[in-house]
Design a protein around this nucleic acid. Structure first.
Length: 271
DNA sequence: AGTGCGGCCTGTCCGC
DNA sequence: TGCGGACAGGCCGCAC
C-alpha cells in the first residue's frame, strides 16, 4: 500500500492526536509481523509521554524520552485513530491506547509491516542507518542521482526504488516520475545524461508533493487515519493504465515487469 | 560491490 | 459454486 505520500499523509493525520499524549496501555493481538512485536512493549511504554511523530522514508517514528517506536506499514498496513472501546476487526494487530480515551490502531492483513523499538538514536538503527536521502530534502538532486547512476548498469526504475539511493519511491510513483521525466523505465542508469537526471529528480519531487497534497493514492484499501481514502489515484497518468491512451501523445500505455514489479510507461514519450 | 531474486503473508480477482 | 493460480502499494537477506 503505502509509499512516501501515504506514510506522510498518515503521519500528518495521527500527529495531532499523539503528540504530548501519554500511553495508557499497549495491546498486542498478533505479534507476528515482519519481525515479532516486542512483548515487553507494554512495560516499556505504559505511562510514557509521546514527544514527537516524525517520518524517515516509509518508517514512522514515535519519539519518547527513552527511545523510539518505529512503525512500517509494509504493503497493506494502515493506522487509524479510534475510540479505545471500538471493537477490533480482523487484522487489527496492535493498539497504542492514549490518555483521553483514544487509541492508535494498526491494521495489516498481509503482515509485511513492522513495529520495532529502539532505545538508541533511531537514525543509527540498522533499519534506518543505510537509507538514502529524503527526496523532498536539500540533499536530493539531479546531480546527486547522476553521481550514483553514472556507474550503475541497473534499470533506472530499480535505481530510484532502491532505498539506499533515495527513500520513499515505491512502485506507483516510480512509474509516474519516469513518465513525467520522459525516461523509459528499463533504460540503464549509466546511459542517462546529467540533464535528464535533473528532470527525473524534479519529477520525483513534484509527483510526491502532488500526491501528498491529495492525501495519497488509494487503489484498493489505503485508508487515512480518519478512514477516508486518498485522491491521487485520479491523477495517475500511467500506473495501472496499460491499454489506455497516453495523456500526452495518445499512444497506447504498456506494461512490463522490471525487478519482479509491474511497470507502466508510454513507449512514445519515454526513451 | 552490484545485481537479481526468493520469500514473507492474506485478500481479491480471473479463468476454468 | 468451487478451485487453482496470478497478482497486489515493500524490502530483507541471500547467492552469484
Amino acid at each position: 500500500m503505502p509509499e512516501l505520500p501515504e506514510v506522510e499523509t498518515t503521519r500528518r493525520g495521527i500527529a495531532p492526536h499523539l503528540t504530548d499524549a501519554r500511553i495508557n496501555g499497549v495491546i498486542i493481538r498478533e505479534p507476528r509481523l515482519r519481525w515479532p512485536i516486542p512483548h515487553e512493549l507494554p512495560t516499556l511504554l505504559k505511562g510514557r509521554k509521546i514527544l514527537s511523530v516524525s517520518r524517515r522514508g516509509k518508517y514512522l517514528l514515535i519519539g519518547f524520552h527513552h527511545g523510539t517506536l518505529l512503525i512500517h506499514l509494509g504493503m497493506s498496513g494502515s493506522l487509524r485513530i479510534l475510540n479505545a472501546d471500538t471493537p477490533p476487526q480482523k487484522h487489527d494487530h496492535f493498539d497504542l491506547r492514549l490518555s483521553g480515551g483514544q487509541c492508535l490502531r494498526l491494521r495489516d492483513p498481509r503482515r509485511f509491516g513492522a513495529v520495532v523499538w529502539t532505545g538508541e538514536k533511531p537514525e543509527q538503527h540498522p533499519l534506518l542507518a543505510s537509507l538514502g536521502p529524503e527526496p523532498l530534502s536539500e540533499s536530493f538532486s539531479g546531480a546527486y542521482l547522476h553521481g550514483l547512476g553514472k556507474s550503475r548498469r541497473t534499470a533506472i526504475k530499480n535505481l530510484i526504488m532502491d532505498s539506499r539511493v533515495v527513500v520513499g519511491v515505491g512502485n506507483i510513483y516510480a512509474s509516474e516520475a519516469l513518465f513525467r521525466a520522459g525516461i523509459h523505465p528499463m533504460r540503464a542508469s549509466y546511459r542517462i545524461s546529467a540533464t535528464r537526471y535533473e528532470m527525473l529528480a524534479s519529477a520525483i519531487q513534484s509527483v510526491l508533493c502532488a500526491a501528498i497534497e491529495q492525501g495519497g493514492t488509494t487503489l484498493r484499501d489505503f485508508q487515512r487515519e480518519d478512514g477516508n481514502p486518498g485522491y491521487f489515484a485520479q491523477s495517475l497518468q500511467v500506473y495501472g493504465r496499460s491499454g489506455e491512451h497516453c495523456p500526452q501523445c495518445g499512444d497506447t500505455i504498456r506494461s512490463l515487469v522490471i525487478g519482479q514489479r509491474n511497470s507502466f510507461y508510454c513507449p512514445q514519450c519515454q526513451r
